[in-house]
Design a protein around this nucleic acid. Structure first.
Lengths: 167, 167
DNA sequence: GCGGAAATACTCGGATATTCCGTGTCCGAGTAGACCTGG
DNA sequence: CCAGGTCTACTCGGACACGGAATATCCGAGTATTTCCGC
């Protein structure tokens, strides 16, 4: 039971992208450098986020990433699913049906109670994640930050943000 | 984000142990054979369950495993934690503090909002798992089963259950 | 009836294979800006 | 000098390769307990 490191990186990256101004983009290299993580690895997840329609890309020089939707329309669940895949953590292998003398399949038309219970738990887990948006995260941060953290982010954006022509 | 196969095996094994009569035990080999899984691997998880105080062991010939508590005192969470370990799935690596020009640690006394949100989701996940006991699972099964599944289980127990002398 | 040997079953540790994660590298596609060439 | 095309640099997108960690599997040695046999 473990979530990959990519989830954390992806969420922080989205949070950073949320801070740039209208029409601005950030390159994957800048994102990776700011967080001190591997560029290749972050790139992989950014591409997942891109496929999922969470971030949008601007190709070419002066290109990079920006958010594809407003921050209050991006939930933690969206990001987790994009990075980790949509499969539930508990995969029922139906070991009920294995072993010697297996019963015919018609006895197992309904998913077993164990599977149902595990999936239900996962459902509430996801529902909880879906409650929190990037806007919420940024709101909380702004409320508790004394200014230092935001200042560092802004300074970095000053240096690395790129304005794209139009759009 | 994946739970090991051992979780399913462990839950089913506990469910099977719940079916034996007072004073009866089942060997690990029998459990593994019934579910059609590797004996050694199941053994590993049974030992985890044993360490966690969920099942009890009886050594020697005619020995085996039995439940250590009544079925309504064993939750799915107990089993998942025993098999997968107590660590949360989301481990915050504090990448906020990484990268060039990191801020001093005093800016990060509070866990970041991302971590808090992820852990909160995991908390409700576990709470949901804790709501379901083995007794519930067995009750649901009995309610939906037309008799075939229970019959197979009973037949197997007939063959493999062992009565231990006393206590 | 009693004591000891043998058999059985769990416990623990290590060894091996398979899968997944994290990382790096390479090549392809597309675009913006620079450069070069011709008038 | 200017306009147009071309060329290059830089970006993302995707595939592949590799090492290492975690998972899944297996095997053997050790220990405890019951059973059984011999006395």
């Amino acid at each position: 039971m473990k979530l990959g490191d990519g989830v954390e990186q992806a969420i922080h990256s989205v949070g950073m992208l949320a801070g740039l101004s209208e029409g601005g983009v950030l390159s994957a290299a800048a994102l990776a450098e700011f967080h001190g993580v591997s560029t290749s690895y972050l790139l992989k997840h950014l591409q997942s986020l891109s496929s999922a329609g969470i971030v949008a890309t601007v190709p070419g020089p002066k290109g990079g990433y920006r958010l594809a939707r407003p921050t209050d329309k991006i939930t933690l669940l969206d990001i987790v699913l994009a990075v980790e895949g949509p499969q539930p953590a508990f995969r029922c292998a139906e070991i009920r049906q294995r072993g010697p003398n297996p019963l015919p399949g018609r006895y197992f038309t309904k998913p077993c109670g164990i599977n149902a219970a595990m999936l239900k738990a996962e459902k509430v887990y996801r529902a909880e994640l879906a409650k929190t948006t990037i806007a919420d995260i940024r709101g909380d941060l702004a409320a508790t930050d004394d200014g230092g953290i935001a200042a560092r982010g802004c300074a970095f954006l000053e240096l690395n943000e790129r304005k794209t022509a139009a759009r």
